[in-house]
Each structure stands twice: as C-alpha cells, then as structure tokens.
C-alpha cells in the first residue's frame, strides 16, 4: 500500500495516461518510462511518448487469494499485456462481461486501484478492458 502522496504524484502521467518515453536515438519505446535506454546507454535521448492504451493479452491469471489491498476485488484478473507499440506490461483486466483469452484485444480504462484506508488517498490507475 502506497502512503506517500509525493511518490504517487510523480507517477500520475504514467498511471493516468500511459505516458512512457521513447529513445530518439534508436526509437525504442518504454513503459513505464526509463531514464536510460537499455540499447543506447550514454547516447540516450529520451522524449515523452503517449501510448495508445491498446494491446492484446499475452497471458493472464485469476487471483483468488489476494493481498490485503485487493481483498474486496477478488477474484480479479491480472494480465501481461503486449502493447501495440511493443512493450509488455502487467495490468488488471476488469470484468467486462467477456472472459479473457490469450490474444484478445484490450484497451485502457481509468479506475480506482486502491484506497489508503478510510481517510487516506485514493489511487487511480489505468486498467485494461476487453474490446
């Protein structure tokens, strides 16, 4: 559970909008964003890059025994999503009236991820929904 508001705030662009970055030297796209390109090292020239939020399910699993933070959401689905632009990331796949399948197309949606108790911050984050 994330209690520090500053660390959450620094990640809003990535968490709300799937903004990663691209190395202009080799055109490799990264999400989440990296400071140094793994291909270019010192020659890294990073720029902000807006991901489309679309991709397909590479793999998934249904969580029945969750951590405390996600207890009320269980059972829920976590997937490895291959984004249209290349990177593979992990993300929640929301219930959308359709069973997830490997290869199924998904798009990002905006949802609550967790809440810090009754009085703390609410963390919002992208999740994925089957198209």
């Amino acid at each position: 559970m994330e209690k520090a508001s500053a660390s959450a705030w620094r990640k809003f662009n990535a968490r709300y909008n799937m903004i990663g970055n691209v190395c202009k030297t080799c055109n490799t796209k990264y999400f989440p964003p990296r400071i140094v390109c793994k291909n270019c090292g010192r020659n890294t020239k990073m720029e902000e890059y807006q991901f489309s939020g679309k991709g397909e399910i590479f793999s998934f699993t249904k969580i029945h025994v969750p951590s405390e933070a996600f207890k009320e959401s269980a059972p829920y689905v976590i997937g490895v999503i291959k984004l249209e632009e290349g990177p593979m990331i992990e993300g929640h796949i929301v219930d959308s009236g359709k069973e997830p399948q490997i290869g199924a197309k998904v798009k990002q949606v905006f949802r609550r991820m967790y809440t810090d108790g009754e009085e703390g911050l609410i963390t919002y984050h992208f999740k994925f929904e089957l198209i």
């Binding site: 009320e72 959401s73 929301v94 219930d95 905006f110 949802r111 991820m113 609410i122």
Partner: peptide, 16 residues
Amino acid sequence: PGIDEDAATIAVEAAR
C-alpha cells in the same frame, strides 16, 4: 458501479 468505479472514474471516461 463496479467496486473500482466512482464519480471520478466515470467523469474521466465520459470526458475522454
């Protein structure tokens, strides 16, 4: 609403 939806998430989806 889903357990992870509230007035803010609905507003964001509509706004987008």
